[in-house]
Design a binder for these strands. Sequence first.
DNA 1: CGATCTATTGAGCTTTGTCAACTGCTGTGG
DNA 2: CCACAGCAGTTGACAAAGCTCAATAGATCG
Lengths: 251, 251
Amino acid sequence: MSSGIVFPRTDASILADDGDSLTFCSTCAFSQACLSEGMDKSALSDLHVLVEHVGPLHAGDHVFREGDPFGAIAAVRAGTVKTYMVDPDGREQVLGFHLPGEVIGLNAIHDDRYPCNAVALDTVMLCRFSFPRIALLATRLPNLQRHLFRLMSRDIGVASLFAGDHSADERMAAFLIGLSRRLAQRGFSPKRFQLTMSRTDIANYLRQAPETVSRVLRRFEREGLVSIKQRDVEILDMARLEAIALTVLRH
Amino acid sequence: MSSGIVFPRTDASILADDGDSLTFCSTCAFSQACLSEGMDKSALSDLHVLVEHVGPLHAGDHVFREGDPFGAIAAVRAGTVKTYMVDPDGREQVLGFHLPGEVIGLNAIHDDRYPCNAVALDTVMLCRFSFPRIALLATRLPNLQRHLFRLMSRDIGVASLFAGDHSADERMAAFLIGLSRRLAQRGFSPKRFQLTMSRTDIANYLRQAPETVSRVLRRFEREGLVSIKQRDVEILDMARLEAIALTVLRH
DNA sequence: CGATCTATTGAGCTTTGTCAACTGCTGTGG
DNA sequence: CCACAGCAGTTGACAAAGCTCAATAGATCG
């Protein structure tokens, strides 16, 4: 990391938790969410029995590939995972970027195969949960069932956010604000963060040409909305950026 | 209906089932799906206790509105339901069209409110399922839980289908093929059907101007792919239409 | 049978994509 | 340590897909 910005994602204190994480796993998405939804400690320990800690994966390593038989969902503990499909012409379609605390693989339940690829963009740590086992456990733990339903329900909505027809500016603003909020939710700085994905990936995700992404970012910078050095982003005018993103994000 | 085409959707024999439907409900989405997934008859009767049959609703009637407290999901038994959101500028965004056999409201679980509006486009019959009750039942009936997970998982994928950047032709072809396949799945003709939604709604759903929709449809007609009289569609060259739709639908 | 709404068609324009050139990192090997 | 290769990102000029505006045609419903 060449700049002076410190990114908690790679903070040693989080990685150092690993030793204890099988028994407590303080950074695991499920544990945190389940606790906050009132699940008791004994239920949590049930949950941890079926957790498999995976990683570290390195940039380019795949978590799963399109067509693989579905067996498990995974919570991202550290790093960024990109999900994408390859269309019949061989063109890549980026479906999403998944940050610490987020769960991938929920769209594979339907036909028991992963419908997309998932690849690490940087150093990634995961918790894998066998789906058959977590589903079985969910019949005994209504709060866990509820949590799973809510996770899936949210993904339905998220998928339709960027489906609207919005201008390049609106999409980019929404992308940056979205990242900022999701990072903030996990305790990272909402104003300064790193883009772990290439411009090409961002462009693909936003359904634009990489050139358009580049132009919009530079214009945002000229207008004093953000400061961008390579992949390091600083949001300078959150309010104005949020205003641009409003039609996409809706709040 | 002015043309000579008969549309099973409005066929008297289906509507006439209504009297018996509370006890057997042969057209109910859940019943059929659950049966086909190996759920036994006694489980089904449990399910039917918590079903509330709603309808007929008429064109323009709302099933639920954005912000309403979430209480139930609903399976469409007859007719078409359109889901849409209204963005901060007051512009409508069509999220989807829901045909007989399809379930709406799954995206409301996450924050206990419906995130969108649902309105009948024609005469609509519904089965409403109290979600708290069906979730509770699902803890006793693993097949029901499984069915719910699969329904939600599928919706995640569907939402991202039209998110790609595709040409007007590809989107329209995918829209028509998609309708055709979904109707076929429920026993309707895959070659002849009615567009229950306006051109404006189609355009909005496909993120295009109504004029573009009109032009593409007319061109498809000139090229011998389809025949369109008002809202009655006949697919003349399924193979070629599917080929155009391929990059969107992926199979 | 007119009023109104929906759909179609044409003309011009805007946004964004495409193509091409160039810059500047990063990493490797001499 | 520097030179060079290779890739990611930026910038400019141009093209094209699709949008907007405007006018017309057709359908529906009282």
